[in-house]
Structure formats: C-alpha cells, structure tokens
Design a protein around this nucleic acid. Structure first.
Lengths: 191, 191
DNA sequence: TCTCCCGGAATGAATGTTCATTCCTTTCTA
DNA sequence: TAGAAAGGAATGAACATTCATTCCGGGAGA
C-alpha cells in the first residue's frame, strides 16, 4: 500500500513539473521534493529519468484510451463516429490540462518522434480505432482519398492546436465552439 | 567582411545543431566547434545563448516572410489568396527542412509561447497578411464565423503536422499531395 | 622598404553551477 | 533483530560563461 502511494506521489509530481516547465525544468531533486520523497527513492521505482518519462507516458496512454473510446459505437455512421471520437479527445485534453501539456512535451521531443515512428509505420497497437475509422472512410468513399498520415494530420493537427490555445488562455472554448471546431475538422477530411 | 563571415558561420552552425538535436543537444562548445571558432568568440556576437536563439528566430522570420508573400495579390478572390499563401508556406518548409525544424523547436519551447502570446494577443506585426485574410473572409461570410485563433489552428495545424511528417520521412509529399492538403485546409475554414 | 608597436578580435583553459545518479546511513516493518 | 525501504549528502559529468593571453593587420617612424 505505502509502496504504491509513494510511486503515485512521484508520478504525480513528475507529471506536474514536466507539464509546467518541460523536461529540463524538472530536475529529479525537484520532483523528489514535490513528491515529499528522498532523491534516491525515485530510483527504487524507476531505473532512470528516461525510463520514468517513458513509463509515465505509457500510463497516461492506458488511462486515457478507455475514456476516449467510452460510448463509441462502431456500428454508427462514419461521420457520427468521427465527431464522437474527436469531441471526446478535445474534451479529455481540456479537462486534463496537466496531462495534455505533458503529452505535448513528450511528442515534441526525441521520445515522441520514436513513438510516432512506431505508431505510424511499425506494427504497434495504439490508435487502432482511428486507423480503422479512416480506412473505412476511404474505402467507402466518404473521406478524401489521401494517405492515412495526412488524414491524421488534418483531423488532429487543429485539435492539438486548439486545445493548447485554450489551455494557454488564448481562447475560451465552450461546448458550442468545440462542436463547431470538430465539425470543421470533419469538413477537412470528408469528400 | 571577415566579421560577418564569422557571425554567419556561428548562425549556420547553431541553426543546424539545434534543428538536429534540439536546444539541449546543442551546447555552445559544439556550436563553436562546428562553426570553426573559439568558444568565447560566440560571445563577441551574442550576449548569451538565449539572446542568440531569439535573434536566430527573428532573422529566420525576416528572411522567410518575403518568400511566402511572393506573388501574393490582395486583389484576387479569398480562396485563391488562401491557397496561394498556404501552398507557399508548406513549400517553404519542405524546401528548408533545417529552418523548419528550428522553427518547430522554437515554437514548442517557452520562447515560442511568449512569441505566440505577443503575436495573437498583443500588438505585434507578423502574420498581418493572414490576419487580414481571415478577417476579410469572416466579414464577407466566405469563412466560418469562428474566433480568428481557431481559424489559424484549422489552417496551419495540419500544415505544420504534414511538413513535419514529410521531413521525418513518414510521407513523401509531391505537388499534387500538397495541393490536395491545402484544399482540405480550405474546406475546414470555408462556410 | 623594413621594423616595431598598438588595439581590437579571437581564443580556449578555467570557473562555477546544475544535474542525474550512487551509495552509505538511518528508519521502518515483520 | 534481520532485512527491506527510504533518505539525502557526495560524486562526477556536462554546461554556459568568463577572462587572461595570443594573434594579426596596419600605421608610424627610421
């Protein structure tokens, strides 16, 4: 029990500090202090900082994936499925700003490039639902016949940008604005 | 003459190393070595690393802005103007991958957030042409009536993502693919 | 024409700081 | 009381920055 508590404290502290200040604004000593833990203790739970960051990301991924798929019905029409997923995604981001900022940092770092390479090219599970959705959309001629990667970019590029602008305070998203933004993404990929 | 040469060498070396390895993979000593210059020499041209990075970005901005505006005709119809600008932008990125990667690093760092704040909220010149274009599009009811910031994100989010994926080798863009991607961005923002 | 200085430019070893990681000590727990 | 867990001072590597020293071009004087 105490073991998991301590690990949880470290994870939360690392997440917060990295989200706030980036990887290089989150020294291990500072993470330890915020977690209320000795500097050496972190190394009882994680081999080193790199491993810690990678595991942190994986845990976030596993935690968020079910939330985003919640209520997803693969029998519904394509458009509806897309709107559902993208709305869930943007809502997850703005309701979990700390997590979002960490994910952003992760993707914009060497870790993220490797991860993207595995996901897009390799044989790694992950965005299965999205991939299926796009492949389905192309074969049924509902979406533009573009490489999957470009469809991804058209669909998620703006979502990430909008979420970031909301979290940084450049816009104030509400449900209406979110719905209209997601619709606009649909316009970009639909035929 | 020799003076500018040396400064040029430093700028080029810094640009390359930061684009390749990020800010933290480009120590001053390494920049100096690649520039063929003593470590102390850099400080004859730039007050410190922060100032160097900021000036680097400003120089890139000044150099690229005219290239993107080249051939832009404010009298043409909105759609045509948008396609022209966005195509020029993506072409600039994929023809200058080093510059693109540096700009990406810059925007995904505390430097970039400050810059974005100034550009979007403050009274800083910069994306005048784009801002005018979007405002024009909204008042003429050709574009969706969304906050300018969201239109920016819909238009440029995918462009950045696609350029990155091309440069990292995840897709191979050609003129046709570029044209179709830019059209898709137009679909996202048009009414 | 040749020599000798002078001053700014360039250099890179030295400095001080920040950090990840280690490892010996202390504190729990069973 | 033994053994595991936690703590945090110590270590050493990596860095940005400084500064005493060297280099070099060109101008004055012979």
């Amino acid at each position: 029990m105490a073991k998991n508590d301590k690990r949880e404290d470290i994870v939360r502290a690392a997440l917060e500090l990295i989200a706030e200040n980036g990887f290089h604004g989150a020294p291990m000593a500072m993470i330890a202090e915020r977690a209320g833990v000795g500097a050496g203790t972190i190394y009882r739970y994680f081999e080193n900082k790199d491993v810690m960051i990678t595991e942190l990301f994986q845990e976030l991924e596993e935690r968020s994936y079910p939330l985003i798929k919640e209520g997803y019905d693969p029998e519904k029409p394509l458009r509806e499925r897309f709107l559902h997923l993208n709305t869930a995604l943007i809502n997850y981001f703005i309701k979990n700003p700390i997590e979002f900022r960490f994910i952003e940092q992760f993707f914009n770092s060497p870790y993220g490039v490797a991860h993207r390479r595995d996901t897009l090219l390799g044989t790694k599970e992950g965005c299965d639902v999205f991939k299926e959705l796009f492949e389905d959309g192309i074969t049924r001629q509902v979406m533009k016949d573009l490489p999957i990667v470009i469809l991804f970019d058209l669909a998620f590029g703006p979502i990430l940008a909008v979420a970031r602008d909301h979290i940084l305070g450049f816009i104030a998203l509400d449900d209406v604005l979110i719905a209209r933004t997601v619709e606009a993404c649909w316009d970009a990929i639909k035929r």
